[in-house]
């Protein structure tokens, strides 16, 4: 059963991470909207969101990196979507589906490494998998297939880059910083570390 496998500690951490990122997503959503509005007259509106698209995979990669259990990425991304829904995001109900698909993509990325490698490379692969998954979904759901292939390829390339920067690089650096503070010592990620640096606050 699910309840046997997941400890309450993991579930609450995933839910809290979901909450943090639901707030982040909301902030970034308005940032994207600003970028989009600036690009609108040129018809490049979708690129506003492509630049920062990787942010939407961060909850999943960070959760997977900390908890290191199969399913952590998927569940965190879905929980973040549920919290976004509760916050009254205009994306509403379909966020759940988008969250599920992105989580699935990240999950696939880590599964390719059999949940044994958690480093910059696997996080980037996970981010790119999520980017591909969500792109296929958007192709049909937002009917992007009505747009020209050249534009779509450009969008996908920028999305890959964004996935690398946010879901890979920034997530990895943040998690490494987090490990150094010692707060993660009861999770898998912190277990390998013996020395814990003194916090200079």
């Amino acid at each position: 059963m699910v309840e046997q496998k997941w400890k309450l500690r993991d579930v609450v951490l995933m839910a809290v991470l979901g909450t943090v990122f639901a707030a982040v997503y909301l902030g970034v959503f308005y940032l994207g909207l600003g970028l989009q509005t600036a690009l609108t007259p040129f018809g490049f509106a979708p690129f506003g969101f492509e630049i920062i698209y990787g942010v939407w995979f961060m909850a999943a990669t960070i959760a997977a990196y900390i908890i290191r259990k199969p399913g952590a990425a998927l569940i965190t991304e879905v929980l973040a979507a549920v919290i976004e829904l509760m916050m009254g995001n205009a994306g509403g109900v379909t966020l759940l589906l988008a969250g599920f698909i992105q989580g699935l993509g990240v999950e696939l990325g880590f599964a390719l490494f059999r949940y044994k490698r958690f480093n910059l490379f696997s996080m980037t692969v996970a981010g790119i998998c999520a980017a591909v998954f969500i792109f296929i979904y958007e192709l049909f759901y937002l009917q992007y297939y009505l747009l020209s292939p050249v534009l779509l390829t450009g969008q996908l390339m920028i999305r890959f880059l964004s996935a690398f920067i946010f879901a890979g690089l920034i997530s990895k650096l943040t998690c490494d910083g987090l490990t150094k503070t010692g707060v993660l010592k009861s999770y898998s990620i912190g277990r390998g570390r013996v020395e814990i640096e003194v916090l200079q606050d």
């Binding site: 308005y30 909207l33 989009q36 609108t40 040129f42 979708p46 205009a90 009505l146 020209s148």
Partner: peptide, 28 residues
């Protein structure tokens, strides 16, 4: 207040759909 950004996004999509049709090979 909530619909303001959505209307902006919708206008953005209109111009994207208008400029970048699937039939046209080149972007503009």
């Amino acid at each position: 207040l909530l619909f303001l950004p959505i209307i902006l996004a919708s206008i953005g999509m209109f111009f994207t759909g208008y400029h970048f049709q699937v039939e046209s090979g080149a972007p503009v």
